[in-house]
Amino acid sequence: MYGWIWRHLPGNAWVKALTSLVLALAVVYVLFQYVFPWAEPLLPFNDVTVDGQ
């Protein structure tokens, strides 16, 4: 998968490396901003109330 992405990125090695870095950061951003906040309440750390549910 990573090899496939690397081969399909345009430009020389430096441009590819830079693009990869930006892509990786974008993925981390999406994870921290959207995916993890969604996933975290599914874990038990958030249950601090007594609510009969």
């Binding site: 981390v28 994870l31 921290f32 993890f36 996933a39 975290e40 874990l43 750390f45």
Partner: peptide, 11 residues
Amino acid sequence: LLFVVYVLHWT
């Protein structure tokens, strides 16, 4: 690993 960092540190 990223998720652990998120839960333990980022929150």
